[in-house]
Write a protein that binds this DNA or RNA. Sequence first.
RNA 1: GCCCGGGUGGCGGAAUCGGCAUACGCAAUCGACUUAAAAUCGAUGGCCCGAGAGGGCAUGUGGGUUCGAAUCCCACCCCGGGCACCA
Length: 841
Amino acid sequence: MAEHRYDPSEIEPRWQEVWARERTWEVSNDGAADGRAGRSRAGGHASSSYVLEMLPYPSGEPHIGHLKCYAVGDAIAHFRRRLGSRVLHPMGYDAFGLPAENHAIKTGVHPRESTAASIASFQRQFRSWGISIDWSREIATHEPSYYRWTQWIFLELFRAGLAYRKEAAVKWCPKDQTVLANEQVDAEGHCERCGALVEVRQLEQWFLRITDYAERLLNDLDAIEWPEHVKTMQRNWIGRSEGAEVTFRCEEIGVDYPVFTTRPDTLFGATFFVMAPEHPDVMRLAAGTAAEQDVRDYVNHALNETNEERGNAERPKTGVSLGRTVTNPVNGEQIPMYVADYVLMEYGTGAIMAVPGHDERDHAFALAFGLPIRRVIAPREDGSATQSGEQDEGLPYSGDGVLVNSHADFDGMGNREALSAIVAWLDREGKGHSSINYRLRDWLVSRQRYWGAPIPIVYCESCGMVPVPDDQLPVELPDVDDYTPKGRSPLAAAEDWVNTDCPACGASARRETDTMDTFVDSSWYFLRYCDAGNDRAAWDPGVLREWMPVDQYIGGVEHAILHLMYARFFTKALADLGHLDFQEPFEALFTQGMVTKDGSKMSKSKGNVVSPAAIVERVGADTARCYILFVGPPDQDADWSDDGVEGIHRFLGRLWRLAAETAERAGSPVAELTAGAASAGDDLALLRKTHWTIDKVSGDLRRFAFNTAIAAVMELLNECSRLRESVGLDTLRFALGNAASLLFPFAPHVCADIYDRLTGERVWEQPWPEAEEALLESEVYELVCQVNGKVRDRVQAGADAGPEALKELCRAAPNVRAHVDGREIVKEIVVPGKLVNLVVR
RNA sequence: GCCCGGGUGGCGGAAUCGGCAUACGCAAUCGACUUAAAAUCGAUGGCCCGAGAGGGCAUGUGGGUUCGAAUCCCACCCCGGGCACCA
């Protein structure tokens, strides 16, 4: 017998060749015209399924996280195909972005060139991994044929009033020399990209009106199949608060100051009023008072603080009196005004009513400044706590209770009831109204950088902001000599490009020189895949109906807020503009865990980076893919272990060798995989194990339990090895053929090879195997016999034995008798198919 | 501080609806093959007592519910993630 050696370096390229030559994974937008990949099992029009992994940013080489993401996505894509779906499984590149530009600054190499090199390396590796991609739909966001439509979408939003320019206090990254969106600054105030401490600057920038969609972005989370923690993160980020807007008037200067509060029921407890240092009226209020200089100093100091210092709730409260008062609208009290940095300009109205009796922060401030603290809510069980003693131990109290010290109309009322009553009163008096506030801010999308899609706007002396007409798109990114950011976009230096004619009046005008945040590019790419070649429109709505929304989206949790929120916003806005007829882009989401090495995140500085290319070179793509799925549940973090990789490699080798040997023993391949009529003995046992495996793997794939699916195939192989000499060749061929068929979604090359050797057929064209119900159950099983809940024996029981017979079997078991003898059986619990438990005394 | 995950052999993990804890893999030990090693194949395998049959103890800790708990409930400890002066 010829020597059989498992050689992935020979097997893998050979099958990749077949799939590339035959364009196996391409699907058309017209179901009837499809090739084999889209063929329905029944021969009719198959259901469509869109399986998508998050768009990769091509930088250098793909890393192990990409391998995991695509191993998961590809397994799902293959599984769905073989269940009879036409599967759209495309690939592209998020090709605009800072790393390529920073590289250009250092080396002078045009970002287009370094990006092209990275893309080529990604393509090469994705092919070497054997991922089943429809390459005919490949896109890259930096190509004019793509960003032409990014610009078109921007203009659609602009024309609808959803893109606007505004001056605001914005986050500025001093290292990247550009503004950032709120979402791109982390909790400590660092730039999400480069880690530099972010500054605040007053600048005019482009925003997208995502806040208009806050309510829908929140509510529609209920209807999609996403991991609960991702939904929670989005809910927290949107941060909806119900409350009221209440107007406090400063009589001295005759100006009304509205505040937002979630607790209008505590209005009678407001004893002072606080404004954010950035509030535009702060200096105006202080002007001419004794406090003016103090206020100026305080504001200057506060504005120079970093987010990190400012955001620390632990540090002592600071602030300065403005020397003015406002009127509390519910009782006419004059309460003093302060400026303090614990009040944020970006939230609510930039000013608050302070209720030290019932808010921790206001309480801390009142203590520091010797301001009155008044209880206006008493816990229900303690109605006597109405005394206005010098200090009230129970404050601040933020729970529910009964109103006290407020007004005869409300005292004694439950605070929730009082809340509505007070808001209704304010409304009648014209002093306030109920209101909802969101933490979410509008999305700042302009960037003062080169390597992005130009914002297609022209500034004209007489016409103002003019959108570039659709037929003049794309506004192509010009070449520049100097990419160094200088606080304005490098594009500003491209004079020939900047100077243009006004599309409206023809007079000379200037182009917008900022480019778009790269998250704009990736907020709609999943739509483009559906109709990637369309040069007349971004997509044909009819084609979208075939594929969208994405049935299964796969990616890392790090995008839980940024990308996933932006893409949802784009979908809703484009739907409102009549371009889409669905509301959510991603029906189901799966977030894969990180791959670590020695327990920590892989990084160049730690020198613990595992290169997928090196692994594939050493053991092959099938081993790498299987290993990454076998280490543990894919949604959890997994630690890379070279020993573990060897284990999988051995497993695939054993499978391949036994199959190759069996195929050789069997002579020429036989197309039909039949097990023969095994009715007893080892043949039946192996047949049963095969059907058990089919059932197990099918179920596990449905619930993303790839690790246990692979373990089940290992069990089947172990059984094959054990019984290889004692079963018929047909039975062995049947078991091994099914093992290959079931493992194909994880290890496509070796499984295609095995299946070909055994049957001469292509495994990817075979329907997913179905387990025979009758073979899943055996006619005898091992009955567990317990006494007082402890396992004392096991006996053979017939599948059809009734409860009484089972009890009898249990009582008769030798070791059970030893534990029961001389004691009284008080209860007998029977779980048919499983166990009998005798309770004795 | 608040909100999510998670804690099971030497290690990664399994146990899908409250019913055999430790599947599968790694590492380890022993054996076969070999001049030898690698590769491969076979066997052993939670801890403690016992020659064995068998028994006792084990799923972060302490309680509870139940005939029966890794799984449900209460309290606590530890690890990871998210949010955090958002009025």
